[in-house]
Amino acid sequence: MRNIMAIAGKELRSYFASPIAYIIIGFFALPFGVFFYLYLDAFLRQSMQMAQYGGNMNVNQQVIRLVLQNASVIILFVMPMITMRTYAEEKRSGTVELLLTSPVTDLQIIIGKFLGALGLYIAMLLVTLLYVAILFVYGNPEWRPLVAAYLGLLLMGGAFLSIGLFISSTTDNQIVAGIISFVVFLLLWIIGWFAESAGPTIGPLTSYLSITEHFEDFAKGIVDTKHVLYYASLITFGLFLTAKSVDSERWRG
């Protein structure tokens, strides 16, 4: 555990020691803010009209849900930037020799790196909470669906990170790692689009595989164990593949 935390801390510190962390956070928070502004603006106009006719509006469903669904797409673009250097850079610079000759296991290194990346991702999410806080100041949204939605974001992000970590472990070129990760993440997203056209047998399968499909319910405020399980197994699978890749790299030399 101590080793894991040491490595996670080192990862997190190296993100924030370079401009990378700030660029990544900015890359996420800015579009997030734009979506937030647009949806909130539309919502306020509508609710003003509705108020005249005595209707009822829901901030959770009409602002938060829509913003977070869009955020899940931004995440797709940002995640490769977080994971691309994790292993690739260590291999290129030779620091991997330090890690692999220290009394730590491969798994401790992998989990440490994963948690480090997750830490940066959590920092990203925390920044977006500032926007959400505005809603609490000027209105009274329900907090339960909000927690569910952020839990969903966390799980979905974790799944991206663990796959990105694996891809980074297969090369010593961080640009290559970034591009491949991006393509893979994109595929995992758009595979859901084919669900409707794919027919009754393949359709459910493709939508099951789509990483963003499973977020829909979370965005609505529903925590379904089915989706939690999906993300948890994807995370485990990604970490498992990373362990395999690190081990086979060692044998090849």
Binding site: N3, A6, S93, T95, L99, T101, S102, P103
Partner: peptide, 30 residues
């Protein structure tokens, strides 16, 4: 590994860390 110290051909340094931070990190994982 616990009983071995190793200086690889290229010193395994993290460019973003200061020397003290780096050695502190190494001390942790060792």
């Amino acid at each position: 590994k616990r009983r071995t110290g190793y200086l690889p051909e290229t010193p395994p340094l993290y460019p973003d860390m200061t020397v003290r931070e780096y050695l502190d990190f190494v001390a942790r994982i060792k």
